[in-house]
Design a protein around this nucleic acid. Structure first.
Length: 215
DNA sequence: TAGGCCATCTGGTCCT
DNA sequence: AGGACCAGATGGCCTA
């Protein structure tokens, strides 16, 4: 694993149910593809959709097909629908696996503490957002001290926030007890996994992204 | 046991 | 027509 620019531990991604998805083709779906999906559930009250009786869809479909299309038996239609649905399901599964792979890659470059803490999807996205912003600020401050040491660093209020809001907004966004929009209402990222989450630009200066500074 | 997170299925919509 | 994307629904697993 490549050394992290900040020298902080890198998240250890565990694959419990999400597996790397080598095959991108529709036919190379993981074994889960054949896993039985809740046979009794009736999404949108349309369990019989495959039979074509949902919402009178059979009539609708026939009407949509128009009179010029080749007449097909109900059985053939049902078979075709089933086949199309199955293919669509495979594609959708594949798509979600790709999405998860990308999310795992993102987790892989995010520092966490402890090392093996696994971020949820929403935590990963929010933390990445936070982390990128923190690095950006670090670079900006580093530039400041490099080009003009005598020039004082901008006050916190000028640093802005990832959301373009005020420092107050920023800190409240990631504060453990703040808005529900940040993380789960009851548990914060820090509480959950001891993550490095700057709560204010005030703690951001070159080399400041050390765990000790955030604990 | 309730709640959170997740994978999967599904139908709708938009795009090519 | 078919694929990509999306959001809702559902059930399984795990943890406090």
């Amino acid at each position: 694993m490549a050394p992290h620019p900040l020298g902080v531990p890198i998240i250890q991604v565990t694959h419990k149910t999400e597996q790397p998805f080598p095959g991108a083709s529709d036919h190379e779906v993981p074994c889960a593809a054949s896993a039985p999906s809740s046979p009794t559930r009736t999404p949108r009250g349309c369990a019989e959709a495959e039979g074509g009786s949902c919402r009178g869809s059979s009539r609708k479909l026939r009407a949509r097909r128009g009179g010029r299309s080749r007449p097909k038996s109900e059985l053939a239609l049902s078979k075709q629908r089933r086949s199309r649905r199955k293919k669509a399901n495979d594609r959708e599964r594949n798509r979600m696996h790709n999405l998860n792979s990308a999310l795992d890659a993102l987790r892989g470059v995010l520092p966490t503490f402890p090392d093996d803490a696994k971020l949820t999807k929403i935590e990963t996205l929010r933390f990445a957002h936070n982390y990128i912003w923190a690095l950006t600020q670090t670079l900006r401050l580093a530039d400041h001290s490099f080009y003009g040491p005598e020039t004082p660093a901008p006050p916190c209020g000028e640093l802005g926030s990832p959301d373009g809001g005020s420092t107050e907004d920023w800190s409240s966004l990631y504060s453990p007890v703040s808005q529900a929009g940040s993380l789960s209402p009851t548990t914060s990222l820090e509480e959950r996994s001891g993550l490095l989450v700057p709560t204010s630009p005030a703690c951001l200066c070159p080399g400041a992204l050390e765990f000790s500074d955030f604990l």
